[in-house]
Design a protein around this nucleic acid. Sequence first.
DNA 1: TTGAAAGCGCTAACAT
DNA 2: ATGTTAGCGCTTTCAA
Lengths: 337, 337
Amino acid sequence: MTIKDVAAYSGVSVSTVSRVLNDHPDVSDGVRERVWAAVHALHYVPNNAARDLVRPTSDSIGLVVRGAENPFFTPIIRAIDETAKAAGYTVVLHQIRAGEDELAAAAELARSKRLLGLILLGGSTDYTAERTARLGVPFVCCSFTNSFGTLSAADYSSVSIDDERAAAQAVTLLYERGHRDIGILLSAPDDRSISELRCRGYRRALRENGLASDDALVLACGSYDMSDAYRCVRAAIDGGLCFTALFCISDAMAMAAIKALSDAGVRVPEDCSVIAIDGIESTLYTIPTLTTLVQPKEAMGRRAVGLLDAQLHGGGCRRELLDTALREGGSVCSRRT
Amino acid sequence: MTIKDVAAYSGVSVSTVSRVLNDHPDVSDGVRERVWAAVHALHYVPNNAARDLVRPTSDSIGLVVRGAENPFFTPIIRAIDETAKAAGYTVVLHQIRAGEDELAAAAELARSKRLLGLILLGGSTDYTAERTARLGVPFVCCSFTNSFGTLSAADYSSVSIDDERAAAQAVTLLYERGHRDIGILLSAPDDRSISELRCRGYRRALRENGLASDDALVLACGSYDMSDAYRCVRAAIDGGLCFTALFCISDAMAMAAIKALSDAGVRVPEDCSVIAIDGIESTLYTIPTLTTLVQPKEAMGRRAVGLLDAQLHGGGCRRELLDTALREGGSVCSRRT
DNA sequence: TTGAAAGCGCTAACAT
DNA sequence: ATGTTAGCGCTTTCAA
């Protein structure tokens, strides 16, 4: 079932069929109809490989997701997929594990599928020009930016929130509600990634509000996993709770933290308030509902496609910062000061 | 950067390069080394489109996921991806919305990407031979089976749990713990899908335990969404709670139900027990931890690939039923009878 | 063991 | 407005 069969069936040449298929103008209405009729009658579907081979460029963009088990990514992936398809792109989704090298995966994907460009979701924040050169195509960092790398501004686009600022906002909110002993639950304070960025925001907020930093308040659980977060918080409680509020760097970790606190008999928010950043669906259903700074996930996905599209059409690179929105749940309470 | 460049660089013909790339035997060691050296020096990556075009068959299998926002699918997708890659297949992931027609999407994918076969995740359970004929390639239903369709046993493979049985088990467990007024939270009792199957199991368990069915105990929220589940349970409570235990057809819905009950002042499990089927990570962190029948998600993904692989190698079709495992949380309590 | 060449299905000049 | 034809990059006969 090839374009030749369709041509034979409708009594025209293959080029005419190709024109119809690709919506070229110079085809008479009668022929156009006959060809479409043949296409449907034969259930013909063009062979993508042949198309990709002959076209100077494919219409595909790659979406490399690192750690797709994170529910935070789900709505972003969908937004990217829909926006890209609407803009005429084909999206090639490639998921890798949290520990894998997304640049290596992306480079291979870009070459073997002849991608126009790439969107990286959940990648590292420490790229160098040498490492990204391998990609060979424009790329956009989605939900993170190259905070710790050495990339020049002309080399890449990104769309993300201002992680440090959001973290500072969350911590300041806790301060304003009267909390003075504020802990942070993170992966590591120096992982060259969002964990470190949000830790910076935490420290800055403490400083700006005249509070002292205390290492005992920093709960580093070593990963972004819920299981590690749970264990880490339980251990902290067993060691003696020294904070009245906890800022968690992700919603998922906050969920585990609330459970850990609750299991240990610490009431949320009466004994310990909890706040986070992300805003995933599940945390609307925690008890109490999580207070969190919601990332504009759909907008982020749409902008990622927009930024890539701009690069592909000769526009330059940009780094965009989107705002978060406070979603007040019941996990933060006021404290007499 | 094509195979020609590699050939020129290493001073051999393109066919020799092709042989090296594809591990054909008749190549001298010296030449083999030279070619690989060239490949690495030039960072050459074969063009997949050209390969697919010329090869009688691709090495790709399609994975069509309907409703990928469901966290239940995440570990299954990963298991399928890893197992398939290990078996030498390339996985083409295609996500569609809950309402879309997965057979149409799958048929198009199969043709345009020349797939060897398909794995359907989260599809409908009412296929007919006419509709699946369009696929043109072997397929496996993963996590569901063709309970309501007219497909003959030779036409497809599937791997799933026995939904009706699992539901009956869950309800029977509630009965054994002393509950006599048992409700069910589902999408619709007659949606020709797992909601209907699990409803059957619910009714069967009631019957076998000598309990009467009562429509007031059936909470149909119209979808599998958490938001609808929440609203539905709240409405039921406002109408007067007439059950002491609630069987939810999915973990996600149970999470919303627990929240709804809690928000309405109904204590879980003291005033109302909750049980579900699925076993997702999040419900380890609900308060109380959800008691649920865990589906063997990784095994399911692996078996899906195994079943497709068998079909592809001339083996027949099979329908496999996997067992669930009870994960005891704290959402079910005993009741004096 | 190696090379030359045909052709996979399609698009896009170029002809007509 | 429509047809003819040259490749796209690769694998695979077939010859050497």
